[in-house]
Every structure is written in C-alpha cells, then in structure tokens.
C-alpha cells in the first residue's frame, strides 16, 4: 500500500466579532470566555492550515488516494443562558445559545480543486431560560476524502476549522483551557486505496 506524508507549510488564525478567545499555537490551546447580558452576540474563530506534497515526493504506486487529517481535538465548549426579552412579566423571546464547529478539507492538484468536504457539528446548544450545556469537541472533525493523484502537479491541501459562537436574548460563556480545548494539526499520510 503506497503512502506519503503531506508537509505542513503554514497556519493562520483569525477571530471575528465578540470571541474573547486566545490561541497559543505552540501548545494548540484555545481559551477564552464571552459574557453578555440582554443582548445578541456572535463571534467566530477561524484556523486555516496549509499542507503540500511536491510531485517529486509522490509515492511510486497508487492511483486513488485517501486523505484523513487528524486534528486530535480535545476539550469542550460551554454555553449558557439567563432569560430572554420581557414585556411586563411575559417573555417575548426565549434565549438561545450555541457553539458550532465547521471543519473543511480541500485538496488541490496544482491550482485545481479536485476534492472538497465539510463537516458541520453543533458542539453545545441551549434554548430557554437558565439553561447550560457542555459539549465535547470531536477528536477528528475533518471529513475523509478520496482523490485521484495527478502526477504532473504538486499536491496542496488546505484545512479550515471554524468555531462559530452565537447568543441571542441572553448571556453566554464559552471557554477553553490547555486541558480543555487543544487544537493541533499534525501532518498525516495520504494512503493509496486503488
């Protein structure tokens, strides 16, 4: 079975909106906390990592290959609510809070996209007054992709991991800690399947 390791080239991370997040690349620790009261808030944290394999380093045999990146996530996310919008003593809008994780893998032969897949998972979600929920991050969030190796072009693979946090009509807390939430994207092998 032919196999080759894709090489890590670079990692970028960004945050948008209200996130309160900090990311330490050397440990892979994502941590942070957001609180709000009586207002809608949203924020996302985007991590992209680029990998490649020069054509000269392709394995000798094999035509169709399988790519299964291992993000090795661990830890959890937490969301909570207080109460929603009130009119006199009546609640007109129930509070909602959620943390979603979107993981995308895109494979390129030169500059042509040859395979792509996205997994969207809700890590923690609550609806209603005074609710809280903790969700565990999936160990392997990325989809597995099969592709035909174009031996005339270098191979490029881009991974995107996006934590999308939102809160309406209430209060939310979201945090992580090295022991709670770790993101490291190690190199992995593409393995021939045909």
């Amino acid at each position: 079975m032919a196999a080759a390791t894709v090489w890590w080239a670079s990692t970028n991370w960004f945050e948008f909106g209200t996130t309160g997040i900090s990311y330490d690349f050397s440990t892979g620790a994502l941590s942070g906390r957001v609180t709000g009261d009586g207002m809608d808030q949203s924020g996302s944290f985007l991590l992209t990592a680029s990998f490649f394999l020069p054509a000269a380093n392709f394995p000798q045999g094999g035509c169709t290959f399988r790519s299964t990146p291992g993000a090795n996530l661990s830890g959890n996310a937490f969301v909570s609510t207080l109460y929603g919008s009130l009119f006199l003593v009546f609640e007109t809008d129930a509070p909602r809070a959620q943390c979603q994780l979107r993981a995308t893998q895109e494979i390129f032969a030169g500059s042509s996209l040859i395979a792509s897949g996205t997994n969207l998972q809700t890590i923690a979600s609550v609806s209603g007054d005074f609710q809280s929920n903790t969700g565990t991050l999936p160990v392997q969030p990325f989809p597995t992709l099969d592709f035909d190796l174009d031996r005339t072009q270098d191979l490029g693979i881009q991974l995107q991991l996006s934590f999308e946090n939102s809160i309406v009509h209430s209060y939310q807390t979201w945090w992580g800690f090295p022991a709670l939430c770790r993101i490291l994207l190690p190199q992995w092998d593409i393995v021939s399947i045909a």
Binding site: W7, N12, W13, F25
Partner: peptide
C-alpha cells in the same frame, strides 16, 4: 489574527 509558517518547507 496570527500566522506561523514553516520556513523549511515553503509552499
């Protein structure tokens, strides 16, 4: 934002 790159193996 932040960025880190591998100078040994550039794209």
């Amino acid at each position: 934002r932040g960025r880190i790159q591998n100078n040994q193996r550039k794209l």
